[in-house]
């Protein structure tokens, strides 16, 4: 606990110390790991080359980015932030993210409807830069028959070799709700989902996506609910891992870009956002992270097309996009139920 507070304090110090005098310098919160690397490669580098505006990235997970914005409210050190679906709604409610003005950011017109997030008054607060989903990742050597349904995880031969995300993971609660829905429950009644999950013999529950990937790598897990991006990333490393979209639907989310409310470099920030949702940036992210593009008219290679979170033949319509407001309102309750009845079974 203390460690977390210290971390926040240290982060605040770093943020305060960051230079604010250089005009053509943006501070942007992105993700760590290969997600952040892809954003730097596909967006920051070409953007800086074209505009001369320098971008400093600050990697952190969405919840921490949201906390930073809360602490910096009024005089933000961040100019643009990437925050996942789910947390994005919370940041909007906090009033820490600004409005995307289609006049200043004309590329917003090229973003599909599902990727434009509006407040009740119709103003835009976030734009998607790609969709991801939690589906069935599996080891093609150990799993002979490609899985097609979530219930395949319950097969006897996979006992003790299954991994699923915990509620700490962004995909955890959406996965829980997906299973619950497939079992006949709804958000008010999660008992059907709990009863099913109780009987699932898992190897472990992962907090971080990397933990899940490492379990596939070491052979600890041979099948599980995992991100398409992570699964295909392992495949790209030469591991016998594949990904399938379960017929009951893959819970999905997206990586969203936001303008920070009150940024002093609004003009440069708007330029960056405009570039981030351009066709070329979206194409690059999709090719690198296998995220489903939120920008219309993106043409993908066959390889990337086959690795989309909605599957080779799907569209954004085949994704199960949770009702985040509902999820957020129930996070507490759902996590506690999970803790007591699923993890602590």
């Amino acid at each position: 606990m203390r460690r977390i507070l210290m971390l926040g304090l240290a982060a605040a110090c770093v943020a305060l110390a960051a230079p604010s005098f250089a005009q053509e310098k943006l501070v942007v919160a992105i993700y760590g790991g290969n997600w952040g690397a892809a954003i730097e490669k596909c967006i920051f580098q070409p953007f800086t080359a074209a505009s001369g505006i320098v971008v400093t990235s600050e990697p952190s997970v969405s919840t921490v980015t949201r906390s930073k914005l809360q602490q910096q409210k009024g005089s933000p050190a961040l100019d643009v932030v990437w925050i996942d679906g789910g947390i994005s709604e919370l940041a909007m409610a906090d009033g820490t993210v600004g409005t995307i003005d289609p006049k200043k950011i004309p590329n917003i017109a090229g973003v599909i409807d599902e990727g434009v997030y509006k407040r009740k008054d119709g103003s835009i607060y976030a734009a998607s830069t790609g969709f991801y989903a939690v589906g069935l990742a599996y080891n093609t050597k150990e799993v002979k028959e490609a899985p097609t349904s979530w219930w395949d995880l319950w097969k006897k031969e996979y006992e003790g070799k299954v991994i699923i995300p915990s509620p700490v993971n962004a995909g955890g609660i959406p996965f829980f709700l997906t299973i619950n829905k497939a079992a006949g429950g709804d958000i008010k009644n999660v008992q059907p989902g709990v009863d099913r999950l109780k009987t699932l013999k898992v190897s472990s529950y992962y907090d971080a996506s990397g933990q899940g990937a490492s379990n596939f790598q070491s052979g600890e897990a041979i099948i599980g609910a995992h991100y398409a991006t992570a699964a295909w990333g392992l495949a790209d490393q030469g591991l016998p891992i594949a990904y399938a979209v379960p017929k009951e639907g893959a819970p999905s989310s997206d990586i969203r870009i936001h303008l920070v409310e009150g940024t002093k470099k609004k003009e440069s920030a708007e330029k960056l956002i405009n570039f981030a949702i351009s066709k070329e940036a979206a194409t690059c992210l999709s090719e690198n992270l296998y995220v489903g593009p939120a920008t219309k008219g993106v043409t993908l290679t066959d390889k990337a097309k086959a690795r989309m979170p909605w599957g080779p033949n799907g569209t954004v319509k085949s994704l199960f996009l949770p009702n985040w407001e509902e999820v957020n309102a129930n996070r507490d309750r759902l996590t506690e139920i999970w803790n007591k009845q699923v993890a602590g079974k």
Partner: peptide
């Protein structure tokens, strides 16, 4: 510690 982290990072309570 895991429960505490969960409250701060996931359920945001």
């Amino acid at each position: 510690s895991m429960l505490i982290y969960q409250q701060y990072a996931a359920t945001l309570n």
